[in-house]
Write a protein that binds this DNA or RNA. Structure first.
Length: 556
RNA sequence: UGCCGGGUCGUCUAAUGGUAGGACAGCGGCCUUUGGAGCCGUACGUGGAGGUUCAAAUCCUCCCUCGGCAGCCA
């Protein structure tokens, strides 16, 4: 488990914590707090789920309560084991401790069936023969009440018999449903005789072919919470209209009755968050799988180099409230930079190399470099310095623009940790491309020597030509070109065609050959990077850029 | 159109009848051998109109506006 999550919390309050404080004061739950995260295993988790996980787990932790991981697997048609596995991995990675309570709604199917019979006996549920289309037609509209089903007043005996036959698989899919008998004139659609069970001759990922009927969300969810003795059943805003039904079922059943509380889901700009749309990006290969580093999935952020701590700090920053919000990506970027600034080892890497020959230097020497100026315990390392080095192409301009204080013809710049060099000559190929710079160094300007009186404005990174290896580096940009692709009907039209830039021949310190995921590095002046866990191999090392360094010059 | 829920700096979020505050982003400066980090400063907001009150983001009324709901999805 990671440290941040287990530290005593100084989180700011929110309306849910106020509810819990009040419940504790009135002893509503005998001092207990028990939350849960109930994903449907039909996709990978995204950062919005991380908000929910961390909210529920954080509450349990801070109030000395418990937190369950429960799969809401009531729809066999969309659910797969692959998703269960990825969800467990992601929740664990975030550090939300469910104490091995991996629960499944499907394990409660027998109990739910019994509860349904109880409702039938109370004359609060009936078997309805209407087709899906007929049910839609009789549900009414926003302004008109619905029409009662002709099957609404079947006898208890007939309902019991029919329901059992449904369970036994005696009817084809869609021919009958079990409906709650509530109020076809309710202004809340959810109370217009909602469906509790549908007939589905489908294979369930855990129950196999045992069941021919499957409970709907509304019927199942409150029972799941009740069985687990959840105190606060936290869900997103779109379930607000479902709360009266949640309450109705539990009241009719006369069982333990948790409180449902709704909060606003997370939205992030320049990305999409719905599972349906994320699935589409994966299936139609707009991205390289659910864990593509451009995806807002937890696995995507992990592969990108984000840390659990950064996501925890981000969710603390955005808080919990009831108003719809579209959070700025920069809030997330701040969280990861802030974390990595403290932790990441600094290394030299030249992404787009330009060869520099130092004409008055011969031989080779070791240059000491600091591994992390924010953490002196990270120590130092030796860099090789020699006659031939590489610098970043963008760190040289033949004719400097105003405000540019790196290298230019006739100009001087400091090589980080090493010497000040002066550019004497540009070597070009037949197409007028700059292929080499010829420079001279000043011996007494060596970094840390104290012998230099010279000051230069610019400091650039570099790498010795005889002590570096090639690497592939992947740079990522936002996935969409519009701030809120969620709001766009034709959202696929706004995919950023330049969201991935692959640099084939970057130069990295030879020591990085042994780097392992998920170690985070800062390539000095270029950003934070980590090994790509999918494509990096002994043959070809691949780095992902987690996030760029904040750079006040390039922004201008 | 019926019901439900919202509207506080550009963004996210506090203040629950008593000084509208914080973070990010922005801007300016200092410092710096990463144009990073750090430090200092600055600017910026209660959707509107009435009302109650010594006092309103907060309570009341009306209006405007945004979101959700008419799956045998969750």
């Amino acid at each position: 488990m990671n440290e941040i999550l287990n530290k005593p919390s100084e989180k700011k309050s929110n309306f849910i914590r106020e509810i819990i404080d009040e419940d504790l004061r009135t002893n509503k739950w005998n001092g207990r707090v028990h939350t849960r995260f109930p994903p449907e295993p039909n996709g990978y988790l995204h950062i919005g789920h991380a908000k929910s996980i961390l909210l529920n787990y954080g509450l349990a932790k801070d109030y000395n309560g418990k937190f369950n991981l429960r799969f809401d697997d009531t729809n066999p048609e969309k659910e797969e084991q692959e998703y269960v596995d990825s969800i467990v991995e992601d929740v664990k990675w975030l550090g939300a401790d469910f104490e091995n309570r991996i629960l499944f709604a499907s394990d409660y199917f027998d109990e739910m069936y019994l509860f349904a019979i109880a409702l039938i006996k109370k004359e609060k549920a009936y078997v309805c023969d209407l087709t899906a289309e007929q049910i839609r037609e009789t549900r009414g509209t926003l302004t008109e009440p619905g029409i009662e089903s002709p099957f609404r007043n079947r006898s208890v005996e007939e309902n019991l018999s029919l329901f059992e036959q449904m369970k036994n698989g005696e009817f084809p899919d869609g021919t009958k449903t079990l409906r709650a008998k509530i109020d076809m004139a309710s202004p809340n659609f959810n109370l217009r005789d909602p469906i509790m069970y549908r007939i589905l001759h489908a294979h369930h990922h855990r129950q196999g072919d045992k069941w021919k009927i499957y409970p709907t969300y509304d019927w199942a969810h409150g029972i799941e919470d009740s069985i687990e003795k959840i105190t606060h059943s936290i869900c997103t805003l779109e379930f607000e209209n479902h709360r009266p039904l949640y309450d109705w079922y539990l009241e009719q059943l006369e069982v333990y009755h948790p409180q449902q509380i709704e909060f606003a889901r997370l939205n992030l700009n320049y990305t999409v968050m719905s599972k349906r749309r994320l699935l589409k990006l994966v299936q139609e290969k707009f991205v390289d799988g659910w864990d593509d580093p451009r995806m807002p999935t937890i696995s995507g952020f992990r592969r990108r180099g984000y840390t659990p701590e950064s996501i925890i700090n981000f969710t603390d920053t955005i808080g919990v409230a009831k108003r719809d919000a579209l959070s700025d990506f920069s809030l997330l970027e701040f969280a990861i930079r802030d974390d990595l600034n403290k932790k990441a080892l600094r290394v030299m890497s030249v992404l787009k190399p330009l060869k520099v020959v130092i004409t008055n230097y011969d031989g080779e020497e070791d240059i000491e470099a600091i591994n992390n100026p924010e953490d002196i315990t990270a120590g130092t390392r030796k860099l090789k310095f020699s006659k031939e080095i590489f610098i970043e192409q963008s760190d040289f301009m033949e004719v400097p623009v105003k405000g540019y204080h790196r290298l230019f013809l006739g100009g001087e710049v400091r090589l980080r940790y090493a010497y000040i060099i002066k550019c004497d000559e540009i070597v070009k190929d037949e197409n007028d491309n700059i292929i080499e710079l010829r420079c001279t160094y000043e011996q007494d300007t060596k970094s840390g020597s104290g012998t230099s009186t010279k000051k230069v404005k610019g400091v650039i990174h570099w790498i010795s030509a005889n002590n570096c290896v090639d690497a592939e580096v992947r740079l990522y940009d936002r996935l969409f070109t519009v701030e809120n692709p969620n709001a766009e009907e034709n959202w696929l039209d706004f995919i950023n065609p330049n969201s991935l830039e692959i640099i084939e021949n970057a130069k990295i310190e030879a020591g990085l050959l042994s780097a392992k995921f998920p170690t985070n590095f800062q390539f000095e002046r270029m950003g934070y990077f980590c090994i790509d866990s999918k494509y990096s191999s002994a043959k070809k090392i691949v780095f992902n850029r987690t996030v760029s360094l904040k750079d006040s010059w390039t922004k201008k």
